[in-house]
Amino acid sequence: MSLAKRIIPCLDVNAGRVVKGINFLGLKDAGDPVEIAKRYDEQGADEVTFLDITASSEDRGLILPIIEQVSSQVFIPLTVGGGVRQVEDIRTLLNVGADKVSINTAAILNPQLIFEASQKFGSQCIVVAIDAKRAATPSGYGVFTHGGRKETGLDAVEWALSCYQLGAGELLITSMDRDGTKSGFDLELTKKISESVGIPIIASGGVGSLQDLVDGIKLGGADAVLAASIFHYGEYTVREAKTYLRDHGVEVRL
C-alpha cells in the first residue's frame, strides 16, 4: 500500500458561474460552485480544479469569492487556473484559499515566472498547464495556446523539462487532439512527459470511459487524472470511477 493515484474533477467557471452542464440529483442550483465542489468532495474527489474561462478581464475577479467560499467548506486541495499572468495574481488566489495555482500562457511568454513563483510560494503550489498536440517537433508533440489554435514552436517534452527545472511542482498535460473527443488520453504524450520529469503529472483531455482513467495511469504513467464531462453530466460519480480503478489494480483513496 502506498500513495494513491488522484482523481481530479475540473470545473469551468465563467464570470462567477460554473458553466459546463452539471447533472447532480438533488442540487437546487446546479451552477453553484460551492454545492458542486461539496458534492465532489462527498463522492471522494482527491482534489478539485477550477478553471476560470472568463473572457473579459473585469469579470475575472468574480472567481475570488467562489474560491473563498469553497475553501471555507471543502477541505481538500483546490487548484485554480485561467488568466493567471503574474506573481501578484498567484498571491491573490492563494490568499482567498487556493492551494495550487496553475499557469499556462503566462509561463510560455515568461518562463521566469515559474521560477519566481516557486521561489516565492514554494513549488508545491505551482502547477504548469501544458496544452499539447501532435506537431513537427523533436518529440512529435508541440505546445499550443489559445485552445490549441496557436502554435508556440515549443516542443512539449522539452518545455515540460524546462518547467520542471524552473521549479514547477506538478504538470497538467492536456492533449488538444483528444480534448472533447471522449476517445481516451493521448497515452504516448502522457508517457513521454511522465518519464522525462521527476514531478507528478496530471493527465487531461479525452476521457470518455472509466477504462480511459485506468489507461492514463497504468499505460500513460500519470500520477493523477483530471476529467470534466464524465463527472459533470452525471455519467459516473467520482466514487464509481475510483471503485473501477481499484478493481483494475490502481491504488485509490476510497
Binding site: 500500500m1 513549488s123 520529469v197 507528478p200 504513467g221
Partner: peptide, 22 residues
C-alpha cells in the same frame, strides 16, 4: 532519494511526494 524512488512495478516515483497516502 530521487535515484531510489521506484514502486514495486518499477514505475518512477515523483518528488514532491504529493497526494493521499496511508
Amino acid at each position: 532519494n530521487e535515484a531510489q524512488l521506484f514502486d514495486e512495478c518499477g514505475s518512477r516515483l515523483k518528488i514532491p511526494h504529493m497526494g493521499w497516502n496511508q
